[in-house]
């Protein structure tokens, strides 16, 4: 291919080091570090004292302190907020998959003229600002005694993510040839057997990535949490918000609580990113 190259490229392992390759590598690292920089800076700030945090120029080398983290834990019980985050995101993911999977199955393998319209209608409900529904939902929760309640949050998160889940699962299921399902039906499999032994193994990737995305979205949801909960059902989003009120005076404490709030989901995201993206592009990659 590159017979016209004048300089002989250096080969180390599987990479061929020529000018283009070096430029490409350097540029890639540059972009990635730039994107990650704000998070890195926040982690750094969380280990500074409040005075060091607002030093100009910013300090890069300093003696790290853990006092912000201990103070956050003393002032507010981190683990009870974290537990609420786990319960609401996992709960809404499971409930969402239970409702979305049959719907997506029905749409993908028994499409009617209305299927596309139903799907688009579902997605359009997701485009409306949540704030439009806030007062009605608030009043309903008040009537039902569900304010500041974890169960109410699970239901709301589920409904919030349902359109995306149905759509993702639908596009995933559509890639599965329906002949396989028909064959199992011919062999007398019940609907449950067909789902459990034929569809599930084939759709595992799609289900996993749908669940992962739902988990991330629920973990990061702030609007309903801030408006419907206080001490009992508050998630990490409300913990962060409670540190933001004294207008940015305490950067390192704010950083520490932010790092604590995002660390679980970011690390989780690092491990599952391939799975997450693969499910989203299932139909796109052919």
């Amino acid at each position: 291919m590159s017979t016209t190259t004048v300089k002989k490229p250096v080969r180390t392992g599987k990479y061929t080091w020529n000018g283009a390759m070096i430029t490409r590598t350097v540029a890639s690292y540059g972009v990635a570090l730039l994107m990650f920089f704000p998070i890195f800076f926040m982690i750094l700030t969380s280990f500074k004292t409040e005075l060091q945090a607002i030093a100009v120029p910013s300090l890069w080398i300093f003696e790290p302190t853990l006092e912000n983290y201990t103070e956050v834990q003393e002032r507010s019980d981190y683990f009870s907020f974290a537990w609420n985050s786990v319960v609401t995101s996992v709960g809404s993911t499971i409930l969402g998959l239970m409702i979305a999977t049959p719907a997506a199955y029905s749409m993908a393998f028994n499409p009617t003229k209305q299927t596309k319209n139903i799907l688009m209608w579902m997605l359009s409900t997701k485009m409306m600002p949540a704030v439009g529904a806030l007062i009605p939902i608030y009043l309903l929760c008040q009537k039902l005694g569900l304010l500041d309640n974890v169960f109410a949050l699970i239901i709301i998160f589920t409904l919030m993510n349902l359109p995306i889940m149905v759509w993702m699962l639908y596009t995933n299921f559509k890639e599965i040839p329906s002949e396989i399902l028909e064959a199992s039906r011919m062999d007398g499999a019940t609907l449950w057997e067909e789902f459990r032994y034929v569809l599930l193994p084939l759709a595992m990737g799609g289900l996993a990535s749908t669940g992962l995305l739902c988990l991330v979205l629920s973990w990061n949801e702030a609007f309903w949490v801030l408006n419907l909960t206080s001490a009992n059902a508050g998630t990490l989003a409300s913990l962060v918000a409670s540190y933001s009120s004294p207008e940015g005076l305490f950067w390192s404490k704010l950083s520490a609580v932010s790092v604590l709030a995002i660390a679980p989901i970011v690390i989780f995201g690092w491990f599952s990113q391939k799975q997450l993206v693969q499910g989203l592009t299932f139909g796109a990659v052919k």
């Binding site: 990650f36 933001s244 940015g248």
Partner: peptide, 25 residues
């Protein structure tokens, strides 16, 4: 590694994103 650095901002919750940019950036 570059991929992992790149995807990270997507997992940051919007409230933290906003506070981080508002103050520290």
């Amino acid at each position: 590694f570059v991929r992992i650095l790149l995807i990270s901002p997507f997992f940051v919750m919007p409230t933290v994103n906003a506070l981080l940019w508002k103050h520290m950036m």
